[in-house]
């Protein structure tokens, strides 16, 4: 640690105001007078070779340190709290939240799909949907009462179905393979099982999200 200025009195230059202030604080401490925390900080700063031991700066600093403390506790913002947080995450091993990650993956993949969709079909598709909706509404009004009664009667069944239909069931893997190419008597097993795993891993994740109620 750097030596305190008072230990170098012989060769020391004329003390500055802050050094004198610090020395006064030290004297107060030595003679039994109370030393408040800012005086203590002034001594510390001097010992550490800081150049901000002035009382006026300390007041400002005290306020700012307090703001920093609250920001570190998540209340308010402070540039140094941002730095502290950056240090923490840079050396930690925080993982991305699974749901957030899944959302990012899907967004990226769907974004490409949306970009690839030919826009010229939109007007036609919209017209079809609008027309169909209009006719459906017309017919729907006539049969509404009957439909509502039917729906009410089948509600328990629908609820039970909703609980299970959302999950992707296990099923034959044949659709994953090209029908026109026979498996052959030798080889290809690893690729086949790899393909099955990839497909079902995706289904499994979808089921998990469905169970969590996010789908």
């Amino acid at each position: 640690m750097k030596t305190r200025p008072e230990l170098d009195l012989v060769d020391a230059p004329v003390p500055s105001k802050k050094e004198l202030d610090a020395a006064s604080a030290a004297i107060r401490a030595l003679v039994g007078g109370s030393i408040d925390r800012f005086d203590n900080e002034a001594l510390l700063a001097l010992a550490l070779g800081d150049d901000v031991a002035d009382e006026a700066i300390l007041d400002e600093e005290r306020v700012d340190a307090n703001l920093l403390r609250h920001a570190l506790d998540g209340q308010g913002e402070h540039p140094l709290a941002e730095l502290a947080s950056a240090l923490r995450v840079a050396t930690g091993s925080k993982e991305v939240d699974e749901l957030t990650h899944e959302r990012l993956v899907r967004r990226a993949l769907h974004e490409r799909e949306n970009r690839a969709a030919p826009r010229r079909y939109w007007p036609i598709a919209s017209a079809i949907v609008a027309l169909a909706a209009g006719i459906a509404l017309l017919i729907g009004n006539v049969t509404a009462d009957r439909s509502e009664r039917e729906v009410a009667a089948s509600l328990p069944r629908l609820r039970a179905a909703a609980a299970t239909v959302a999950l992707i069931p296990s099923r034959s893997t044949e659709s994953l393979f090209d029908a026109s190419t026979a498996f052959g008597a030798r080889g290809g097993e690893s690729a086949r099982v790899g393909r099955i795993v990839a497909s079902r891993a995706s289904d499994f994740r979808a089921n998990r999200f469905a169970r969590w109620g996010v789908r």
Binding site: R37, A65, R69, L83, L87
Partner: peptide
């Protein structure tokens, strides 16, 4: 070896110095 309020000031200075 300081009080908590002094720690706040020390940490403030420390982060400034680190920056």
């Amino acid at each position: 070896g300081v009080t908590v309020s002094t720690l706040d000031v020390v940490l403030h200075r420390a982060l400034k110095a680190l920056k």
